[in-house]
């Protein structure tokens, strides 16, 4: 029997269907939609809530949608990556369903790719839903919006930002065959790079390292300069989490330069804290670097997972 191309497609789509039907019925996936919906609603309603609690009145903001990054940010990327991916390989081993699955005449590479593709589709559907909801919601709450044609860039950026985490979840899940290690391991990586990373970066002036690590990356400032109270201008994160907003900002302000600082704590009183200018780079550098970082991490971790899965012995 020869393996024709259409034969391959049929089998690949069978795996995708297997996975999607499973995803759609998982309470976790429904939970993910609810969380996405809740987060988006919260960011839309935040100003109204603040007003109700005695804050300033809600003003129209034509840049709300474009600056909202479709309601997504660092932790949400990690969360969605974990929810879409923590089960695709490891849970099959944990539940033993891998046994009848891998006994079917579908190559392991096809199973692997089909599952990954299904995770991607799930993510894409969730993000599209979020994007539409945020755009319509933003319009209703904050009035007519600027630059709506750039909103799909946030979606593309968000996908890049999440893929890197998906690859890490997949890697941990495949190597350890444990959904828990996949989920908590990835959370650990995120906490390590994001929270601890940004503190070290600012204090030690070694922030550039974080440009090459998934997450929020280094912090710099564009369109401003030093002042007695620290740098002014727009804060820019160089990390893979910010690909979407950086892409949009780059199109709106192609000539921006981003400057990095470090903090010297010279004495004990606040006025002795010094912001020392380190270096500057063009905005385009940052975008290219973070996309390259996202792709390289994705390719490396997916390739290792694929290699491990292809060779995996089913002892379950």
């Amino acid at each position: 029997m020869s393996v024709s191309h259409s034969g391959w497609t049929v089998k690949f789509l069978a795996v995708v269907r297997y996975e999607l039907l499973w995803n759609v019925r998982k309470k976790k996936f429904l939970g993910m939609l609810v969380v996405a919906f809740a987060l988006a609603t919260l960011s839309l309603a935040l100003n109204h809530i603040a007003y109700a609690l005695g804050g300033p009145p809600v003003e129209l903001n034509p840049d709300f949608v474009i600056n909202s990054n479709v309601g997504l940010g660092g932790f949400v990327f990690v969360l969605f990556a974990i929810v879409t991916t923590m089960n695709i390989i490891s849970a099959e081993f944990e539940s033993g369903t891998i046994v009848p699955l891998l006994a079917k005449p579908v190559s392991r590479t096809t199973v692997f790719l089909g599952k990954l593709f299904a995770a991607f589709l799930t993510l894409l559907a969730t993000y599209c839903f979020l994007m539409i909801y945020m755009t319509v919601g933003g319009f209703l709450v904050f009035g007519p919006q600027n630059n709506l044609h750039l909103v799909p860039l946030s979606l593309v950026g968000a996908l890049f930002s999440t893929l890197i985490w998906i690859a890490i979840v997949l890697f941990l899940g495949t190597v350890f065959r444990s959904s828990l290690i996949a989920a908590f391991g990835t959370l650990g990586v995120w906490i390590g790079t994001t929270i601890i990373g940004s503190i070290i970066g600012v204090l030690a002036g070694q922030g550039w390292i974080f440009t090459y690590i998934p997450g929020s990356g280094n912090q710099g400032f564009a369109n401003g300069g030093p002042s007695p109270f620290g740098p002014t201008g727009t804060g820019v994160s160089t990390g893979t989490d910010s690909i979407g907003s950086n892409l949009i900002n780059y199109i709106l302000h192609p000539s921006w330069e981003v400057t990095y600082y470090k903090i010297n704590i010279g004495g004990t009183t606040p006025d002795q804290i010094q912001w020392v200018r380190l270096y500057s780079e063009p905005f385009s550098n940052i975008i290219l670097t973070s996309i390259a970082v996202a792709l390289i991490y994705f390719i490396v971790f997916v390739a290792i997972s694929w290699y491990v899965f292809r060779r995996a012995q089913v002892t379950e």
């Binding site: 269907r17 039907l21 079917k104 579908v106």
Partner: peptide, 18 residues
């Protein structure tokens, strides 16, 4: 051990596709 979230008929159909 068969995937719990699929119906018997669906599972056979999907395996058939495979």
């Amino acid at each position: 051990k068969l995937p719990k979230h699929l119906k018997g008929r669906e599972l056979l159909d999907i395996y058939g596709r495979m």
